[in-house]
Each structure stands twice: as C-alpha cells, then as structure tokens.
C-alpha cells in the first residue's frame, strides 16, 4: 500500500569557517584606458554562479553593464589568494571584497569626474557619470577612464575582506563562533510503498533566508540543486567499503538522483539583510541542501510511523524498519 506523509526540516548554518579559523577573501578591480574593466579573484566558480554575481556587484558599484566586465578567476599566476570555494562563503566574503575594491576605484573616478564636471553630486549609472542637480553635466564611463589614465592616477585597486571570528570559550564552549548565520526550512511530501520500501518524493517546498538575493534565479537554481543532492543523501547515496577497499567505485553504483527522481521543487527566497554582507547578502550553497533529508525522513515518519536513524533510507533499510514495526 502507498502511504503519504508530510515532513518539515529546518536548519541554521554558520557562514564561512568560524571558530577563529582564518577566513579572508580578496578582489582586484582594474579600469583600462578604453573603459573596459578587469576583475581578478582567486575564487572558483564550480557551477554555483559566483562569477555572475561578482560581475553584478562590480557593475552595480560602477554603474556599468555587467556583461562588459572581464573576469579572471582561480589562476594562481594572475589572481590574489581568496581562500577556497567552501562553507557557503563566496557571496558573503568575496562579495564584500568585490564591493570594497569597486568603491575604492570609484573614489578615484569620482574625483576626476568632479574636476571635469565641476559638480559633487554625481551618479554612476548606465555607463555614464552625471550630476543629479544638473543632469546635462555628464561624461561617459569610457571617457572618464581615459581621463583617469591621462592623469596618471592609480586605476587598479585590491581589497581584502576578513570575517575571521573569535573562538568560543574553550572551557564552556560558549561564544559567537560565526560571523553570521543563514536560515532555511523545507517541506517534503512523500509516498511510501509499504510493500517494497520504495519512497517517492512528490514535492519539496524550500525556503531560504539569503539576506539579499543578488541574482534571484541563480539562488533558485542553487536551492533546486541543493534539494536534489539532499534527496540523494536521504534515499540512495551510499559508499560501501569492505576491508578498507571501496566497493562503490563509480556512478553506476553510487546512486545519485536522476531527473526522473527529482520532484517539482518550489523555491522561496526570504530576504532579511545582514549588515555584514554585501547589500545584506549571505550564502545559500549548503543551506539549500541541509534541510532536505530531515524533511524527507520526517515525511516518512508521518506516512508510516517509522523513524529512520540511518542513511540512506533505501529499499532494504526502510523495508526492514517496516517489518520490525509490523512484528511489534
């Protein structure tokens, strides 16, 4: 018989490394003579979309189109060290470095523009710099870049951002281990086949507080990807080992979900800005995946009254629990 259930999983997650472990990132922003912009960062985008939002942040600060920015990342020959892509930290730590470096170079550009336009209330918008009170006084970003170089001003800025926290009290374990925290909750609806132990996840509703979504569709993609990973973690993924040798040696044996297994996902973004994040933003990488397994296991418990305490909740493990319950 198929039985349906609903479950909820919640989590909060410390951004970055915490516990006094060094957590710094960096960015370098250079304005070229032709008005093009080069951004260098040691951070790796391995699919989560950090390259896109770095360009968005620099573009936002300088009032230029984000697709005009040339980004050089993760090249030890060319980019300053920025720490690893991990701990859901890139938006929060490297994002701050991007904003800092952009604002530093904007200051130089502002001083040149003030001198040329004779106004101080300047806006950087749509590739132009103009006075708010006298909008006819304007100069293109491209021309301004040229003027800066012509004056021999520093047209490259490097910024570091450090979120290293204090450690907690070693005696009591008390203290504030992380710079800030992300919050997320998910709801899962499942159908459990009590005759075979099969679990079908019917839908997931996923809510994440990201502080500020720099790129909302990117955040939704992160949430959906995280849910798919959490689903595999809950139901199928398992590394088997025998006498120190791996028995699970390829993706034919390590069962990650296919597109047929991932249910409709309904992502919701909550924005409660944090003052320490760029535009109030914090990370979403791991927060998107952490609540999924608890939500699914709670849904299973809700459906059949069986509490799974060992992952994965695969056919054999779940059916054993069902049989044990029937015996009681």
């Amino acid at each position: 018989m198929k039985k349906r259930g609903i479950g909820i999983g919640c989590m909060y997650y410390g951004m970055g490394y915490g516990f006094s472990r060094p957590d710094v990132s960096s960015a370098e922003v250079e304005i070229c003579e032709d008005g093009s912009v080069i951004v260098r960062s040691g951070e790796v985008d391995y699919g989560q979309g950090s390259d896109t939002i770095f360009c968005q942040m620099v573009a936002e600060e300088l009032g230029i189109r984000y697709d005009t920015i040339q980004l050089i990342t993760a090249d030890t020959f060319a980019t300053p060290n920025a720490g690893p892509t991990s701990a859901s930290r890139l938006t929060y730590v490297a994002g701050n470095a991007m904003v800092k470096a952009s604002r530093a170079i904007k200051k130089t550009l502002q001083s040149v523009a003030e001198e040329i336009l004779g106004e101080r209330d300047l806006l950087f918008l749509d590739e132009e710099i103009f006075s708010e009170s006298h909008p006819e006084r304007r100069i293109s970003f491209r021309q301004l870049a040229k003027e800066g170089h012509f004056r021999g001003l520093p047209m490259v800025e490097t910024a570091w951002h450090d979120i290293t926290t204090k450690d907690v009290n070693p005696e009591t374990g008390q203290g504030d281990a992380y710079s800030t925290y992300a919050y997320a909750a998910q709801l899962a609806e499942v159908a459990v086949d009590t005759e075979t132990g099969e679990v079908e996840v019917l839908r997931i509703v996923a809510v994440a507080d990201v502080g500020k979504a720099i790129n909302p569709s990117n955040v939704e993609g992160q949430i959906e990807g995280g849910v798919a990973m959490g689903l595999g973690y809950a139901l199928t993924e398992e590394i088997k080992e025998e006498g120190g040798y791996l028995k699970t040696r390829n993706l034919g044996e390590y069962m990650i979900p296919t597109s047929m297994d991932v249910p409709p996902i309904d992502p919701h973004i909550v924005e409660v800005p944090v003052s320490s994040g760029p535009y109030g933003a914090k990370g979403v990488g791991e927060p998107a995946l952490i609540p999924t397994a608890p939500a699914i296991l709670n849904a299973i418990a809700n459906a059949i009254g069986v509490r799974v305490t060992e992952l994965p909740a695969n056919l054999e493990n779940l059916h054993r629990l069902i049989r044990e319950k029937e015996r009681d």
């Binding site: 099969e198 199928t236 979900p257 296919t258 047929m260 297994d261 695969n314 056919l315």
Partner: peptide, 12 residues
C-alpha cells in the same frame, strides 16, 4: 520493476 531510482537503475 523495482529499482533504486526511477531511471538508470539496475533491477533490484
């Protein structure tokens, strides 16, 4: 067929 997932699964 009973498999560990809905596609690309060896029959259990």
């Amino acid at each position: 067929k009973l498999g560990r997932r809905k596609a690309m699964a060896r029959a259990r």
